Simulated assay, not measured.
Amino acid sequence: MSTPRLELRHVRKRFGDLAVLADISLSVRPGEFVSILGPSGAGKSTVLQLLTGALAGDGGDILVDGAPLAPGSHRFAFMPQRDALMPWRRVIDNTTLGLEVEGLSRKTARARVEPLFLEFGLSGFEFHYPAQLSGGMRQRAALLRTVVQERSMLLLDEPFGALDALTRREMQHWLAGMWTRHRWTVLLITHDVREAVLLSDRIYVLSARPARIVRRFDVPLAHPRPSAAAPQVAAIEADILKTLFHPEE
């Protein structure tokens, strides 16, 4: 079995007297799509902040490809909850922003991004402003900006949480198709059980704060996934919901 792309071993985090993460151990192998579910305020986003270096942990180990995660490492491409597109930059200039920050020239960055606009459903909108896009298109632009950095792993923090229900479902199916084609290595933070089952190879469920992993769910379903009405999908969702609401059972 391959070395995990990412492995957390007994990771802990406190903010003063407040214990947020008590014991987090999980792994993500190359090409896997893994999700973290948990109650609101459990510390799901704190996990990503530890990975991006925005926060320092208080114990445990974070390994990337078997080696300790170095401070200031740029191994992950991060997509926050909001699209964070700059309203004064055209879409193409928003999608190249990360590359330009890394030092690529505007011309080189555009040459890398432009071929992907068709696949991301943004062809013809390169020179529009974010305010001229639908919510789903803005999220696709934000994901394009994330993946074009070609990092070893994508960190997605509730990327569709701000969308209306219909657009969110559309985006979830779109992301599932994109992942099937590209086999990105992904760690997703979500509060949506159905989203996690639709997208993930494996799901880790957190307890309330201070968070620990209360259960791991493997999702042995091929892509594209059956509809939510399929018995096997409904059974997994019901089991996850039971764990979220009654973790002690």
Rank of each mutant, 00 (worst) to 15 (best):
V148S: 04
Q149Y: 05
E150G: 00
R151G: 00
R151D: 03
S152T: 02
M153W: 00
L154A: 06
L154K: 12
L156H: 00
L156C: 07
E158R: 00
E158T: 13
P159H: 01
P159K: 08
F160V: 12
F160A: 12
A162I: 00
A162M: 07
L163W: 02
L163V: 00
L163H: 00
D164E: 09
A165M: 03
A165L: 10
L166H: 02
L166G: 09
L166Y: 02
R168S: 00
R169I: 14
M171I: 12
Q172E: 13
H173V: 14
H173P: 05
W174F: 11
W174S: 10
L175I: 07
L175W: 03
L175H: 14
A176P: 09
A176F: 01
G177T: 06
M178T: 10
M178C: 10
M178G: 07
M178N: 03
W179F: 04
W179P: 05
W179G: 05
T180H: 15
H182S: 08
H182R: 15
H182C: 08
H182F: 12
R183H: 14
R183M: 14
R183K: 15
W184Q: 10
V186P: 07
V186I: 15
V186E: 04
V186L: 11
L187P: 11
L187Y: 04
L187R: 13
L187S: 13
L188I: 14
I189R: 12
I189V: 15
H191G: 11
R194M: 14
E195S: 09
A196G: 03
A196E: 12
L198V: 15
L199S: 13
L199A: 11
S200I: 09
S200N: 11
R202P: 03
I203C: 12
Y204N: 10
V205M: 04
V205W: 06
L206Y: 10
L206N: 09
S207W: 01
A208H: 10
A208W: 09
R209Q: 15
P210S: 01
A211W: 06
A211Q: 02
A211Y: 01
A211N: 02
